[in-house]
Each structure stands twice: as structure tokens, then as C-alpha cells.
Simulated scan of single mutants.
Amino acid sequence: MRNKWWAKLLRIVGIVLMSLTAAFTLMGGAGTSCVALNPTGFGGKFAGIASFQWLWILFVLIGVAAGILGVRAVVLLIKGSKKAYRAAIIALLLGTILNAIHMVASRSLRGSSMPVDGVLYMNILTFLVFLLFRIPGIWKSVNFEKPVENEQTGKKAAVFSLVIVGVLTLTIQFVMAPTHTIDGINYANVWHVVMSIIGSVLILSGILTNIVKRFTPIDVKTLWAVK
């Protein structure tokens, strides 16, 4: 039953969506650190949150944690672990609640909430998709809590996820430029070297995963050991 082509496609789509959501959440949490640590900088654009600096520090810490939980969920989804679906839902719920609070706080204190909105909407979209997966007729074929019968499905999901997230990592500074450019400086590009290295490694890992005969998702044993 789970060998149906549409079930394989949905499984891959779900894993890729979860990968993108985890990446957005992780980068959103890490990116907030600039404002959290220096709210009165950046031309005073974020001065309104200075009195609530502690809250923005929490946004950073919890955002990074939610992103890491999302990455863990992706690995479990690829493996078909019995804890995979629950791990994904927990990560998505945490990301949704966190970014909803972040969005409301930002709009209230500084009059704008971008790019938090995008991270929130991505979490909501993926959360809704995963809820749809629980429809009995779909779940019977997609069931993320069982190892996929065709190893190539998991391999393709890992390859697509690695490459797409890698491309996102390499281009995020351009995507976020409209909301991160202050006084002519694109602050989304301050980690250019680090992001370039990470993005390149992810894409290379995806390519290598695609060509190796024996599939070892993400080729990171420490992640693969997650139960």
C-alpha cells in the first residue's frame, strides 16, 4: 500500500517542507540575536524593544532550540522512526507559538514584525500539511512512523532537503535584504562566510548522498543515531 507513487511523493514533500521550516526557524532564532544583544543600535530602529530585551533573548534561545528540534524531526522522518511524527508536531507547535508571540510583540513595540511573519507562516503551513497527513486514507500509505519500504524514497527526500536548504542558506541574505537593510547596510549578510560554507556543505552532502550506493541520510552518524 505504501508503495503508491502519490504516497512516496507526499512523504518527500512532507520531509522537504519540514526541512525548510526547521531551517527558517533556526536561522530566524539565530538572526534575532543581533537585535536581542543590541536593541538600541541599528539607527534606533529597534529602540522600542530595549525595555524587553530579555524577551528577545528568549526568542533567540527558544527559536534556536525549536530549529534544532525541527532538524531532529527531519532525521526521524527520513528514518521512519515511530517517534518521527510526534517530533515533527512538537517542533512545529513550538515554532508556531513562539513566532506568533514574537510577531505580536514586534508589532506592538516597534510597529513591524517582518521577517518573523514569514517564519510563522511557514510553520503554520507545514503544521497544517502534517495534520492532513493524519487523514486515515492518507496516513495508511504515508505513515511516517514506519520505515519506508523503498529505501530510494528516503534517499530522495534527504537529497532534495539538503540541496534546497543549502540553496536557501546561500541566498537568504538576498531574500532578507529588503527587511534587513538599514542605512545602506544589509545586516542579513553579516554572516556571509559562515552561511556560504554551511550552504555549500549542505549542497555537496546532497550530491554525495545522491551518488553513493548505500544510502546514509545526511551522512552524519551522530544525527542518524537519533532514536
Rank of each mutant, 00 (worst) to 15 (best):
V148M: 13
P136W: 03
N38S: 14
F133D: 09
P115E: 03
R107M: 10
V163S: 10
I78W: 00
I172D: 09
F52R: 07
T153H: 02
V193M: 12
L168V: 12
A188V: 02
N99E: 06
F215E: 13
Y85R: 14
A177V: 03
I198Y: 06
E149F: 06
Q53R: 09
V35P: 00
W5I: 12
I62V: 15
M1A: 13
A84D: 09
W5A: 15
L55E: 10
W5E: 12
K83M: 03
V119W: 00
S33R: 11
S108R: 09
M122T: 15
G44A: 08
I62A: 14
T216P: 01
G41K: 00
T126Y: 01
D219E: 07
I15P: 00
S113F: 08
K8A: 15
V60P: 00
N38W: 07
F52Y: 15
L93K: 01
K213C: 04
L202Q: 14
V175M: 13
A23N: 12
R107Y: 11
V175A: 14
P136E: 09
W54M: 08
H180V: 05
L92P: 02
R86E: 09
G111T: 11
K227A: 12
L94C: 10
A66H: 02
G31S: 08
T171S: 13
G95S: 05
K79W: 10
L77D: 11
L120M: 13
G67Y: 04
I90W: 07
I138Q: 02
V74F: 02
S113G: 15
T153M: 03
V194L: 15
G118T: 13
F52H: 12
S200V: 10
T222F: 15
